[in-house]
Design a protein around this nucleic acid. Structure first.
Lengths: 233, 233
DNA sequence: ACCTGAACACCGTTCAAGT
DNA sequence: ACCTGAACACCGTTCAAGT
């Protein structure tokens, strides 16, 4: 690989929106529609150009490349995350509602699953959330690097738990699919492991959503208990 | 979307390896080389065909499509994860070394970052690890669904923490890159948030690896403490 | 049974040329 | 300053045809 400087959309000036026609905002809005309607494969520079009644290559005036566009889009997901003031409700309640809110934000923008953790999150919305988390954990009593570690731990858990949830939903979701067939398939794969088999057969394939939610709760509780424990030492 | 049954390579018979020439194993081995050497973009059906001195389309005899090939490759990552017997070292030590081993496995196959959580993990290696985790947590005292939840929580944490680590390494790694320039860039983005700025300026851009490792420790400790707490109630 | 090349329907991106 | 179409260098996959 040749030497190439680190870059991000957020570090470059946006082209001024001149005519009523195109602008970064317009492009992002249209791209968002494409993604939310058709999923990740719905977004190509060509399709996006068409939707905006423009040549695909016109977009390159506003955005350096597709990755930059994705950075822009990624930040929109962070806009859907809401934070309750830790000074009002306490850090733990604040962390809990934020975690749920993060999970919800990803679930409602499934196309973002492939972006999380792979794109720098330096957009204004991401920074705002990061800053709120910082306040939250400082309020809890963390100091120095521990504050950063707590932030990283919480986001890692939420994203790590939610991304597979999306994969599950998109393979099974919006499609004629028989939960029984699914169960049987997994059971077949796990045939050699009696303990796993047992679990597969009872793990609620009829209501996977409910089980997922329970799992999220369980892990979140553990996570927060563990962080609280750090404060005690 | 039309109705399409759930499918996975692991649920279909493999074509028999006949001649010394090609087989699923040969293909996977060659693909693995491509990925480890050139990264995710190094793998295309055409390049893989060329490497095997075959037409790109020959591969479709052994593998239904690229996604199936990726499933096969993904399972190889799980092969690198090692588990210590919880009956010998205790569940917590076993969980700790497994967590490190999982992190290490992903770090040494960075191309897998994009696959984790998005592909079903039904391969023999993945199942073996999953089963070991089950033993581990049962030994710890978990029962019923809680065992599954503990497994999900631990893997979510490890993957959620490690994937961004890879992203960081591949944007900055193997490339002329100035940590100071990087720091300055992030600082610029965070300009509006004094607390974040402060943290950015001390967060060890000279030795990001060390800081990452500390963060992983911190979170893992929290996670396991939290799980232990579940057992007490 | 196994392999092939041609062909189809796409991609992201560059760039000279237009207004 | 902004937009264009043509062109380049790729993709995954299907399929009729070959051995």
């Amino acid at each position: 690989m040749s030497s190439k400087a680190f870059s991000s959309v957020w570090l470059r000036e946006s082209r001024k929106a001149t005519s009523p026609g195109r602008s970064r905002e317009e492009i992002v809005r249209a791209a968002l529609e494409l993604l939310d309607e058709e999923g990740p494969s719905g977004l190509s520079m060509r399709k996006l150009g068409a939707k905006l009644q423009a040549g695909a290559t016109s977009l390159y005036w506003y955005v350096a490349n597709k990755d930059e566009l994705l950075e822009l889009l990624y930040d929109e997901v962070w806009a859907d995350m809401t934070v309750q003031d830790p000074d009002e409700v306490g850090w733990r309640a604040s962390a809990t509602t934020l975690a749920y809110s993060m999970r919800q934000a990803i679930l409602s923008h499934p196309w973002a699953a492939g972006l999380i953790g792979r794109l720098p999150a330096l957009g204004p919305n991401a920074l705002h959330v990061a800053n709120e988390m910082r306040r939250m954990f400082k309020r809890a009593g963390f100091t120095g690097l521990d504050t950063d570690f707590a932030i990283a731990t919480l986001t890692a858990y939420v994203f790590g738990m939610t991304i597979p949830e999306i994969a599950w939903k998109t393979t099974t979701g919006n499609r004629e699919y028989d939960p029984e067939e699914m169960r049987a398939a997994v059971a077949q794969a796990a045939a050699d492991y009696p303990d796993m088999l047992e679990s597969v057969n009872m793990a609620g394939y009829e209501d996977p959503q409910a089980v997922r939610a329970m799992a999220f709760d369980f892990g979140l509780l553990s996570m927060l208990d563990g962080l609280e424990r750090r404060l005690a030492t």
